[in-house]
Simulated scan of single mutants.
Amino acid sequence: MTNTLTIETSGLTCSVAIKTPIIEKHKILAEPRSHGKVLLPYISELLNDAGIQVKDINTIGISIGPGSFTGLRIGFAITQGLAYSNKIPVVPISSLEGMIHSFCSQSNLPNTFENIKKSIVVVTDAKMGHLNFGHYRVNGLEAETILKDRLIEISRVEHLILSLKPELILVDNLSYFSKFKIDFENTFEVHSRAQDLIRVTEYRHHIGLSEDVKDLELSYLREADAWQKNRHP
């Protein structure tokens, strides 16, 4: 029997999900700067609903970014506390890849990638004139990386997308990206959610891709001091 907890705090939305052999539930709140207030209470509520304790969790899936500096740090700190003290392995998941899993779920597609297009570009606003950019290929149960998540200048996005010729483009804000000359017929707005990370967390844990929380690293794509300089000019 496997008990799985997933945490997603990389964006404006804070979400947590739990799955046991008996129950599968989630909590989500789309409210800016709420992560620090609600994350632990949400986890406690879900554990109580499932009738288990933290020590009963077999693995924790966590979105490691790129995304909100503050949100990522909150999710990271709580995951560290839960996993380290209870020796729970963790499964790190890119927030850009997480958007692919959420697209599949929110499109009411089967719980595999077999029915969605194969080449997917994921782009999110990274502020300060930059974008978070990733290119993936869907292969069975996995979203394989073609172009590693990276930070690019806004001026490069149109050329890069045209050169890669993806079959699907996922963005975090459709109105923001409407100013670019990209294929909007196959462009969709989606946000990564914890409940959509359950399947990939279980799969990667099953095939031995979970890791010790001491080895967990966040993917900022931008140095932390750049965020501080931007917030305090």
Rank of each mutant, 00 (worst) to 15 (best):
I28T: 14
I28D: 04
E31W: 03
P32Q: 09
P32F: 08
R33T: 08
G36D: 01
L40T: 10
Y42W: 13
Y42N: 07
Q53N: 15
T59R: 06
I60R: 03
I60M: 11
I62L: 05
I64D: 01
P66F: 08
S68A: 13
I74K: 00
G75P: 02
F76T: 01
F76K: 01
A77N: 10
I78G: 10
I78S: 04
T79D: 02
T79F: 07
A83W: 04
S85K: 02
I88G: 12
V90H: 04
V91G: 00
S94G: 11
S94C: 12
S94F: 05
S95F: 06
M99Y: 10
M99N: 09
H101V: 03
S102I: 03
S102H: 07
S102Y: 07
Q106F: 14
S107Q: 11
N111V: 12
N111Y: 08
F113N: 08
E114I: 14
K118H: 02
K118M: 12
V122H: 03
V123M: 13
V123L: 04
D125I: 01
A126V: 10
K127R: 15
G129C: 13
G129T: 07
F133Y: 15
G134V: 11
Y136V: 14
V138Y: 00
N139C: 13
E144L: 15
E144G: 08
L147D: 09
K148R: 11
K148N: 13
R150A: 09
R150W: 01
L151C: 15
I152G: 05
E153K: 15
